[in-house]
Simulated scan of single mutants.
Amino acid sequence: MSRHAFSSAERRAVYRAIAERRDMRRFVPNSTVGEDVLARLLRAAHAAPSVGLMQPWRFIRITDPRLRKQIHSLVDEERLRTARALGPRGEEFLALKVEGILECAELFVVALGDGREAHVFGRRTLPQMDLASVSCAIQNMWLAARAEGLGMGWVSIFEPASLAELLGIPEGAEPVAILCLGPVPEFPDRPALELDDWAHARPLAEFVSENRWRPVALGWGHG
């Protein structure tokens, strides 16, 4: 084992946070999150890796109740459009709870910052690495939230231009996530979409191959 490895207890804690992270939609009403905890979560997000150290993430904390309701309305409008686009599964989709915007203790909008075209390192052929970097920041925050005993849900059902206009996000920047954060009644042992029978996760072996693009059953992910 590497001399840089964490202790056994520390490793178990890291892997536990990864395994028990869930995309949460149900929150304890009228709950709060301490400012010290929020600071830790945002520091965890800001510690994420980013291509070329561009740090493209921008976090907007929503504290205005009226603005929260307007964001919820934008999401609800897109929820109906998504249902229509799903055709035969539309009614099934509408029965799902897909967000907790009005119930969560804290609400954040995460955006890609403007001026990203100036960052060429690592993005000349893969410009989408700015979004990959923001995703790493969100995942850091998600895992830190789980370690703090808080739930978090990533809402992507919205029209970016409408949300950008509502929040005064400048041209060149783009909202990519609405994050619902706060205490939750429980952490389910499986993803919500599995519990709702919408979709089911597939085993790791189906996603790993060696040397070329082809499925190779390595036996991982079945234990």
Rank of each mutant, 00 (worst) to 15 (best):
57 W>T: 01
21 R>T: 05
39 A>W: 04
55 Q>K: 10
135 S>A: 14
87 G>S: 06
20 E>N: 11
135 S>P: 11
212 R>Q: 12
15 Y>C: 15
55 Q>E: 11
141 M>N: 01
177 A>C: 13
171 E>P: 14
214 R>N: 08
70 Q>C: 10
164 A>C: 12
71 I>S: 03
42 L>E: 04
184 V>P: 02
63 T>S: 12
145 A>R: 03
41 L>K: 03
203 P>V: 03
208 V>P: 07
136 C>A: 15
47 A>H: 06
133 S>V: 07
177 A>T: 03
58 R>K: 13
128 Q>R: 11
95 A>N: 09
167 L>M: 07
55 Q>D: 10
204 L>P: 07
1 M>Q: 08
40 R>M: 11
179 L>I: 11
81 R>M: 14
57 W>K: 03
115 G>L: 12
148 E>Y: 02
11 R>A: 14
221 G>C: 10
191 P>W: 00
77 E>R: 07
127 P>W: 00
36 D>Y: 05
31 S>D: 05
125 T>I: 07
69 K>A: 15
89 R>G: 08
214 R>S: 14
205 A>M: 12
213 W>F: 15
100 G>N: 01
186 E>R: 13
193 L>A: 08
154 W>D: 02
202 R>L: 15
165 E>Y: 04
102 L>C: 04
21 R>S: 10
53 L>A: 12
23 D>C: 11
222 H>C: 14
87 G>T: 04
77 E>T: 14
28 V>E: 06
5 A>Y: 09
145 A>I: 05
1 M>A: 13
155 V>R: 01
162 S>I: 04
42 L>G: 04
29 P>F: 04
165 E>L: 15
157 I>E: 08
86 L>K: 03
4 H>N: 13
